[in-house]
Design a protein around this nucleic acid. Sequence first.
DNA 1: TTAAATGCAAAGGGTTTGCACCGGA
DNA 2: TCCGGTGCAAACCCTTTGCATTTAA
Lengths: 153, 153
Amino acid sequence: MTVRTRSASQGFGDVRGRLRSAGLRWTPQRRALIDVLKATNGHVTGAELVELCRGRDPETTPSTVYRTLEVLEEIGLIKHSHGRDGRQEFHIAPSSEHGHAICESCGEVRELSDADVDDLVASLGGAGFAVDLSHLAVGGLCHDCRAAEVAEA
Amino acid sequence: MTVRTRSASQGFGDVRGRLRSAGLRWTPQRRALIDVLKATNGHVTGAELVELCRGRDPETTPSTVYRTLEVLEEIGLIKHSHGRDGRQEFHIAPSSEHGHAICESCGEVRELSDADVDDLVASLGGAGFAVDLSHLAVGGLCHDCRAAEVAEA
DNA sequence: TTAAATGCAAAGGGTTTGCACCGGA
DNA sequence: TCCGGTGCAAACCCTTTGCATTTAA
């Protein structure tokens, strides 16, 4: 049940328009990256995106990908954070801010619901700390990996 | 839970003994790094540690620092995670596993109490996800930075 | 003595940048 | 036409590794 209704931010559908209205351009490379991002419906590292784009067009260069990611983040289409290994991780910007639970074994990412974090936010808020949900990362083991680990032992 | 009672910090005072009993050695370089780590009493990146060590001894080489950090982590003295910029961050291992709240403005780190995270852990636990408290990072704004930000606006 | 640790230098991985050329609008 | 984008190549930063040398125990 890893969040189905991921109808990301209202406008993942009209990227072209959003770019244009910002005086930016709609290019084949950008289209490719958008498609790839859509297909991932989750979290990917910059390097992975470069690879995925290369799958479509072997000519793809890292600089273009990273520069486009920058642009997409600027117009609020995607967000990025960092994985455990320190690499950048991008994901389609959600309609609402939310944290993530990342399995340290298989890397699976699940989004945290408001209910999951309500108390934490309240607790820290009481101490004067304003939580930024988009930068809340919880490490751990997902159900499957945990079972696998127990089995090994 | 796999939280072995590694009451780490208790022994930040007898690193030498801990190394020895593991068949490892006590060297000037290690001593320097330990001192530096003690002085930070917080979170530092690998690169920062290299710099700080160079402050004491300009001859310090990165490889030694990183290798020592590795060793220190192995004996449970320190832990590392990743900062927002993707760089490794080391900190003295706490006596008990706990998460961190990091101010995105000033970088200040505060530790989360059990009370802060109890509900989150329970909530995810119910979904089969075993939270690893040592990898729980919450971004946000600390009291002071938040006030400063409001003042600016 | 002898395995562990160091220093150096070089590689490595991910990401960024400068610059000339290309191409959407 | 014109400014934004692209591709290339090289640079960068942090981190890791191989290997000969040093050194703690």
